[in-house]
Design a protein around this nucleic acid. Structure first.
Length: 332
DNA sequence: GCCACCGGTGGC
DNA sequence: GCCACCGGTGGC
């Protein structure tokens, strides 16, 4: 049950000028195209990141030979999902991406074991149309957060994008596809927008770590808060924010889930855990948890669920998929 | 000394 | 398994 679509993609090998300057971010490793089941309805999100780890380049290339698929892709997942992706790998020229220059700068970790590895970072945002299921780029992080806040009650449609793309319709080709050129992850739906003046930061961790990402809230003062406990404490110490209307309900430290299986290291077995504690229930209340039924979420008839199948993987053919991933990107 | 990033733990 | 929290650490 819970599978989600994860897929990672490698930004193709772009040689050129991408917005990150050098790199090319390609990454890849076992691509697992997990089926996208569209389940979730609610799910939102993905992340595109550019993970430029020089070390991976070799393996990457290798993978590309084997796995890049192509057609596979997708069919798509149905459902509206919010996704963050790496603009460096997309040739969405006419879309002015405001990819949060700060957050999308590649970061370098400083941990001994990961000797200067470049960390993935969110490049831009996309949301899936609830009608045609095509991914649409969202121009700003703020707009993305606005959409995400009410994605369940107010599904996103291509028409929703008219605010910044007057002509867009479901007949237009997707702005991007899960083609394995980027790291994708499903975001959580209905996360409140941060209070005015505050920023919600998502930092993607390096692959193979104990968790996928971290969320931080940056207060107007610049103070970074990393848990609800810290937020609560901070608000108590700064009642002026509370007076202005800031409340705990405006914070959420939920992180998206990577579509690439194994991006996060599995936690070793813990013998102390009682057997019946291994299957918590109701953990994800916003998702229908009976994975095998169709969840339509208000979208009658929509092919929301694509059964998981290995076929996804088998379908992959050695072709090049990344080619168009290298389209030039615009650096805002 | 600060802080970004990571690992580990406890709880569910 | 996922999630929340927070301590530790190297690099600056």
């Amino acid at each position: 049950m819970e599978r989600d679509h994860l897929d990672i993609a490698t930004p193709g090998k772009a040689d050129h000028n991408d917005i990150y300057g050098s790199s090319v971010a390609s990454r890849r490793d076992k691509v697992k195209h997990e089926p996208k089941d569209s389940r979730s309805s609610a799910s939102a999100g993905g992340i595109g990141t550019s993970n430029q780890n020089p070390k991976d380049v070799a393996s990457l290339a290798e993978e590309e030979e084997h796995n890049t698929d192509d057609e596979d892709n997708h069919s798509e997942d149905a459902q509206k999902q919010l996704v963050l992706y790496d603009p460096a790998a997309v040739g969405a020229d006419e879309i002015a991406l405001d990819a949060d220059p700060v957050n999308s700068q590649p970061r370098r970790n400083s941990f001994p074991n990961y000797t200067t590895r470049l960390l993935p970072s969110v490049g831009a945002f996309t949301v899936q149309c609830a009608n045609c299921f095509k991914w649409r780029l969202i121009p700003t992080k703020e707009k993305y957060e606005e959409i995400r806040e009410h994605i369940l009650e107010q599904p996103f449609y291509c028409e929703t994008a008219h605010e910044w793309r007057a002509e867009l319709s479901c007949a237009d080709p997707p702005d991007l596809t899960q083609d394995g050129s980027r790291l994708w992850a499903i975001d959580k739906p209905n996360i409140a927008q941060p209070p005015p003046g505050w920023e919600r930061l998502l930092r993607i961790r390096g692959e193979g770590g104990t968790r996928f990402a971290d969320v931080y809230y940056v207060a107007p003062s610049g103070k970074r808060l990393r848990s609800m406990v810290e937020v609560e404490k901070y608000l108590q110490e700064h009642p002026d924010y509370v007076a202005q209307g800031v409340s705990m309900s405006q914070f959420s430290f939920q992180i998206p889930r990577p579509l690439q299986d194994n991006y996060v290291k599995k936690r070793p077995y813990r013998p102390a855990l009682a057997p019946d504690e291994t299957e918590p229930v109701n953990r994800i209340t916003w998702i229908a948890d009976n994975g095998d039924t169709d969840l339509r979420l208000g979208m009658p008839g929509a092919p929301l669920f694509e059964p998981l199948s290995q076929s996804f993987k088998k379908k992959r053919t050695p072709s090049k998929r990344l080619s168009n991933a290298d389209a030039a990107c615009k650096s805002s």
